[in-house]
Amino acid sequence: MSETTVDILIDQRVAVLVDGNNIELSLHDLVGKKSAMINFDTLIPKLLNNRSLARLIYFREGKSISPKLAERLLTHYHGSVTPCYKSADIPLTIKATQIAQKVDTIIILSGDADYVELVRHLKGEGVRVEIAAVNKTTAKILKEEADHFVEITEEDCFVFKRTYKRRKKGNSK
């Protein structure tokens, strides 16, 4: 028998839903710096693995949402940033159930055990559910319930360096 290489077209629509506060805190713990952020340019291709991106939504609690992050997600991934009144759990869960019939896979970036029931529900609806998070800060039950777990490592993030302009003495502006 001779081996034949067969090209397989993967036709799967994927939604990536990010619990921004959870992932940011996990990255800060992983790297040891509060300015660690996700490097979407390395992480998204790793997560998609030749599948098509249907949605990317970054849920973020609080008012301090970087306009640069929102612009970058829109420009490079047609993504969006959704501010949340309190935690991202409920808005992310609602959005996941709303889009479940429109995608094949939902990837949740969070290690929070609060998403276990959402994972179970989505799987019951026939949606493949993947969790991408920092291994050390991810609930064991969440990894067990998901169809697949992708570990976010230091290679998937960068440390944001702020640049400050020094003010001249006596200048209040």
Rank of each mutant, 00 (worst) to 15 (best):
132 A>F: 11
151 E>G: 07
135 N>R: 10
31 V>A: 02
101 Q>H: 13
157 C>P: 10
57 I>A: 03
64 S>L: 10
66 S>W: 09
55 R>H: 14
136 K>E: 15
157 C>Q: 04
159 V>Q: 04
102 K>C: 11
172 S>Y: 03
78 H>D: 13
16 V>Y: 03
68 K>W: 06
64 S>Y: 09
12 Q>H: 05
46 K>A: 13
13 R>C: 08
95 K>W: 11
129 V>H: 06
89 D>I: 11
34 K>G: 13
92 L>F: 08
129 V>T: 07
27 L>R: 08
60 R>H: 02
153 T>Y: 00
119 V>L: 06
53 L>A: 05
41 D>K: 01
93 T>W: 08
142 L>W: 08
23 I>P: 07
23 I>W: 04
100 A>S: 15
16 V>W: 08
63 K>Q: 10
64 S>G: 01
27 L>F: 06
24 E>W: 01
126 G>F: 13
33 K>V: 10
1 M>E: 00
4 T>E: 10
70 A>N: 00
89 D>N: 07
117 E>P: 04
100 A>D: 12
113 A>S: 15
114 D>Y: 07
139 A>W: 11
3 E>L: 13
130 E>H: 05
37 M>L: 01
151 E>K: 12
118 L>N: 05
128 R>P: 09
97 T>A: 14
19 D>H: 09
64 S>W: 00
95 K>M: 14
13 R>Q: 13
14 V>M: 14
77 Y>K: 01
136 K>T: 15
76 H>Y: 12
109 L>I: 03
10 I>W: 03
63 K>D: 02
5 T>M: 10
55 R>D: 11
145 E>R: 03
127 V>D: 10
99 I>G: 09
101 Q>L: 12
127 V>N: 15
63 K>Y: 11
9 L>Y: 06
35 S>T: 15
166 R>W: 04
121 H>D: 03
29 D>M: 14
90 I>C: 01
126 G>P: 10
158 F>I: 10
62 G>T: 01
128 R>I: 12
149 F>W: 05
82 T>S: 05
157 C>I: 00
21 N>M: 05
161 K>P: 03
127 V>E: 13
123 K>M: 11
110 S>E: 11
117 E>S: 15
85 Y>C: 00
123 K>N: 11
29 D>T: 15
115 Y>D: 09
80 S>I: 05
40 F>Y: 09
121 H>V: 05
138 T>N: 04
49 N>A: 12
47 L>N: 06
100 A>L: 10
12 Q>L: 05
9 L>D: 14
18 V>R: 01
115 Y>C: 11
125 E>M: 06
95 K>E: 12
132 A>Y: 11
66 S>G: 15
48 L>N: 00
33 K>I: 10
45 P>C: 04
120 R>K: 15
170 G>L: 01
3 E>V: 00
62 G>I: 08
82 T>F: 07
99 I>A: 04
123 K>P: 03
132 A>C: 05
